[in-house]
Simulated scan of single mutants.
Amino acid sequence: MDAVLKSLMRSAQNEVEASAARRPSREEAEAAVRTLIAWAGDDPSREGLLDTPKRVVRAYEELYSGYRANPEKILDRTFGEIGNFDDMVLVRDIEFYSHCEHHMVPFVGKAHVAYFPVERVVGLSKIARIVDLFARRLQTQEHLTSQIVTAMDEILKPRGVAVLLEAEHMCMAMRGVRKQGASTVTSQFTGVFRDDPQEQVRFMSLLRGMRP
């Protein structure tokens, strides 16, 4: 299993490095935005749109900042002063904003992440940062779920990881079938969560039971 996880991590890193190597210049990116504005039927030289290409490129730097972040640097610091604690750590309702890789429109939702630590724990904010890191890339929800699980499992090496995402996809709400309010749920488990159905039940019960 370790070999598979390492292969996935290497593959993801290789994709990021290859993308960075062929990254267009800022001027080329702004020109591409002007082309899209003209293709949509508007005039990119009119006053209201004159600075739009620059704004879009700046926004893309933030929206897709996950390509320039390293999950190992986020999860590398852990804490050992936890007494004899060895039970589940759950961070729920982590808001995330991502973009569908098929249509480049947003999907928005919440992530719920749990793990069983081994002697050391990671800062809770780092779990939210890992969700953000992978969400700020062009994604499918299924791949996003898998990337969060793989990073937590490979870097922290806990006894198990559980991730559940629930999101609304604007590519489904704004276009195509136009079904507003439809929610997509994905989950993935490793270690004790995968091997012991009771731990999956406990994870799901904590998510439901703690809601107001």
Rank of each mutant, 00 (worst) to 15 (best):
A182R: 09
T150M: 08
V185W: 11
D153M: 10
V149G: 12
V177E: 01
V149P: 11
G176H: 00
H169I: 08
M172I: 15
E166T: 09
E154V: 14
V185H: 12
S146T: 15
V185N: 11
K157P: 06
E168F: 00
A167Q: 06
A173K: 12
K179N: 10
A167V: 06
A173N: 04
S183H: 08
V149N: 04
R159I: 08
V149M: 11
M174C: 04
D153Y: 09
A182M: 07
A167Y: 08
L164Y: 07
T190H: 08
V163R: 07
I155G: 01
G181I: 09
R178K: 15
T184C: 05
I155T: 11
V185Q: 08
L164M: 15
T184K: 08
A173R: 05
L156V: 07
A151C: 13
S183G: 00
Q180C: 02
E154D: 13
I148P: 04
S187C: 10
M152W: 04
S187I: 03
F189I: 10
M172G: 08
T150N: 07
R175K: 12
E168A: 12
T186V: 03
V177P: 03
G191K: 02
G160Q: 00
G191H: 01
H169Y: 11
R159Y: 03
A151W: 01
V161D: 01
F189P: 05
T150V: 14
K157G: 06
G176S: 02
I148Q: 02
R175S: 08
I148A: 10
S187R: 13
L164K: 15
V161K: 12
A182W: 03
E166A: 02
M170I: 05
T150F: 02
Q180T: 15
E154S: 14
Q180V: 15
A173G: 05
L164Q: 15
Q147K: 14
I155E: 03
F189H: 03
E166S: 01
R159M: 11
A162P: 00
V177F: 01
M152G: 07
A167P: 12
C171V: 05
G176F: 00
R175P: 02
M152P: 07
M152Q: 12
V185K: 07
E168L: 02
V149T: 10
L165G: 09
L165V: 04
Q188E: 15
A151D: 09
I148W: 14
V149Y: 02
T190D: 04
K157R: 09
E154H: 14
L165P: 01
A162N: 00
A162E: 05
C171S: 03
V149E: 06
Q188V: 08
T150E: 00
V192A: 10
Q180G: 11
R178C: 10
S187W: 07
L165W: 07
V149F: 02
M152C: 06
H169S: 09
M172T: 14
R159L: 13
A167G: 14
G191R: 09
G176N: 10
V177N: 00
M172H: 05
T186E: 12
I148S: 04
V149W: 06
S183F: 01
L164V: 13
M152V: 03
E168S: 12
E166C: 00
P158Y: 04
T184H: 07
G181N: 07
Q180N: 13
G176W: 03
E166V: 04
Q147H: 13
D153H: 09
Q147E: 14
M152D: 04
Q180D: 12
S183D: 00
L156W: 01
P158H: 00
L164D: 04
Q180A: 15
L165A: 06
G160T: 12
S183V: 15
R175G: 05
